[in-house]
């Protein structure tokens, strides 16, 4: 049995609306082990984005417990959750979210500024990760000078630069074509092999197939939680690497 990295128990999230509290998450229980690759699936409005925001410590649950490595996140202050995001989590967004004014190297090194890492080390780590995602020749380019797939690689490099335990990817292939999506998913699979836990939100079954476990949300609750069927995909993720 692997160590538990994330533990969610009896999680509720309600949004206030003029018509009363709207329950976005209802009694969610989930445990994710270190090194797992989990795909979160579900239609729009199923609560999966809300769930991701809570996983990413960007939002707080109305009630319930969310623990990362045994630490209850709900009791942390804003600054402490910011530190947690910087130290343990890496984010990959659908829209890449690179800063357009900065070189790719600076974009990748950005999280290290907030972790008080010295300039020389920031630079060498940023280069190392750009190398890892295969973009070492674009160190000084701007985000608008490279393709979408390349931008997403840079975003992944940025998410990895502070050596996080958990990578949170929100529809990372939503803006990419099929071929590029496969490349990105291959990259994720490789990272997962190296031991990084990945939680990925997607609504495409083809993408979810790369994950080892699929969790389905509907109307704010988990309706299905099962390992990916090895024979159900047209591609075995192991072969795709």
């Amino acid at each position: 049995m692997r160590d538990t990295l994330l533990c969610i128990r009896r999680l509720y999230k309600e949004y206030p609306t003029p018509a009363g509290a709207f329950p976005a998450l209802k009694d969610v229980n989930l445990s994710i082990g270190a090194g797992e690759f989990v795909a979160i699936m579900g239609p729009s409005g199923s609560g999966k984005s809300t769930f991701m925001n809570i996983l990413g410590c960007l939002d707080r649950p109305t009630s319930g417990v969310y623990e990362i490595k045994g630490q209850n996140v709900s009791v942390l202050s804003k600054d402490e959750t910011a530190r947690l995001r910087g130290d343990l989590l890496g984010f990959v967004f659908q829209g890449f979210n690179l800063l357009p004014r900065m070189s790719l190297e600076d974009n990748v090194a950005l999280p290290l500024i907030y972790a008080d890492v010295k300039k020389e080390e920031r630079r060498s780590r940023a280069r190392e990760l750009l190398c890892k995602v295969g973009l070492q020749q674009y160190t000084h380019s701007r985000p608008n000078q490279i393709s979408g797939g390349q931008q997403q690689r840079v975003a992944i490099a940025r998410a990895l630069v502070n050596r996080p335990r958990l990578l949170l990817a929100d529809e990372p292939t939503g803006n990419l074509d099929t071929h590029t999506s496969e490349e990105i998913m291959t990259l994720f699979t490789g990272l997962n092999r190296e031991g990084i836990t990945i939680v990925l939100v997607t609504h495409e079954p083809d993408i979810a197939r790369y994950a080892g476990r699929q969790v389905h949300f509907r109307d704010g609750a988990i309706v299905r939680d099962e390992p990916t069927q090895e024979n159900s995909g047209r591609n075995d993720p192991e072969e795709a690497i």
Binding site: G56, L58, D79, A82, R83, R85, L110, Y114
Partner: peptide
Amino acid sequence: TREIGIRMAIGAREQD
């Protein structure tokens, strides 16, 4: 605004 959101997501505190 979006840039601020990104910075916060990757570890910037309010005071940063």
